[in-house]
Write a protein that binds this DNA or RNA. Structure first.
Lengths: 187, 187
DNA sequence: AGTAGTTCTTGACCCACATCAAGCGTGATC
DNA sequence: GATCACGCTTGATGTGGGTCAAGAACTACT
């Protein structure tokens, strides 16, 4: 649970008093491999910090899943768009491995925002960071070839190959499992 | 200038007192057609609200520009990633038509965030909205064919065709000008 | 251990869209 | 109103990566 405090404090400092107001709002959730953390059509109720495990963000598209991203230790997890907008999720979140997540309920977070300007700031900085990540990924998607995207991911997150099925990585890189397999062989 | 107040009040209510603190931080900027609003490599100094005109967000990629998005009346404008991170811009912002923009300086905005929790909230809600827009676009990019993307854009923003060169729209839709031209003919 | 359901690999083939090239507006500049 | 510079169109040709298919290697379940 201290993980939550450390994670928040990467953005804003917290006094012990502030933390003791915040802490009770966070709860631990366990998901077994393959479990659905948020399904398409439902409204995401929580925002999570990953304590352990790997999770996948994806959406189904004629037959197979298109993979949008992964979350792991220390990163955020959840269907943010649904969480923020309170609209049905377009993406689903699945536990790729057994996972322990620390989550906060939407209403509780809004209450914290209302009571504590420091939390409002945290919320802003957090979403700003998400935007920056998206911008980087957008450039890479647009300007790199299939092979370059493969190289880039393997350079940055080689561990992913051990953690999640190749077809998911392939989909994340916007290529078919066949192409991914052929690229691996070439190296 | 009242446009700024109205735009902010789409997210949070402002008292006259609050507004009179905020207003002096916003300034009007004029750009003529073709002018560079933010160049690649420089740090975006301002966050803009569009008073009039159309602007383009793009980045160069072997020879031509890859177009990421457009801004027009009432929407936000600028290289947000650079503005938020204070790092050199990866994208450039160009005036497609003569443009009048209302802008606020980075430091001034941070000062407002510090002084006024209501502005901090505005900032949070604003970036949340930007993220939601990205999610929608990401789904469309991934799940629609070139022709479907064309149809979707023509249904939603037919006016764009009158405002910006076809090659930019083509690039925004991730296709060559030739493909775009052929799609138009088919309709 | 045996069966069934996945995922990964490999080969053969295909196609949507890109690339290349040439001619045609159209509007800015002198 | 001639010249120049782009943007748009149209046709011919090329190709990266997708699709289809079939077998091999895992994994999970009983």
């Amino acid at each position: 649970m201290d993980l939550v405090r450390r994670t928040i404090e990467r953005y804003v400092p917290l006094t012990d008093a502030e933390w003791s107001r915040i802490a009770p709002n966070w709860q631990e959730f366990a998901f077994t491999r393959g479990a659905r953390i948020c399904g398409i059509g439902q409204v995401e109720q929580r925002f999570y910090i990953v304590k352990s495990g790997v999770q996948r963000l994806s959406f189904p598209h004629d037959g197979n899943d298109l993979c949008i991203g992964f979350a792991y230790d220390g990163s955020w997890c959840g269907e943010f768009a649904s969480f923020l907008s309170r609209k049905p999720a377009r993406f689903e979140v699945t536990a790729v491995t057994d996972s322990a997540l620390l989550g906060i309920q939407y209403d509780d977070l809004q209450q914290l925002y209302r009571e504590m300007p420091i939390m409002e700031r945290w919320g802003r900085l957090l979403v700003e960071e998400l935007i920056l990540g998206r911008a980087v990924r957008e450039v890479e998607q647009l300007s790199l070839s299939a092979e370059e995207r493969y190289d880039r991911l393997m350079a940055r997150s080689p561990h992913l190959l051990q953690l999640v099925p190749q077809k998911d990585i392939a989909s994340y890189l916007r290529m078919t499992p066949e192409t991914f397999s052929r690229l691996r062989k070439r190296k």
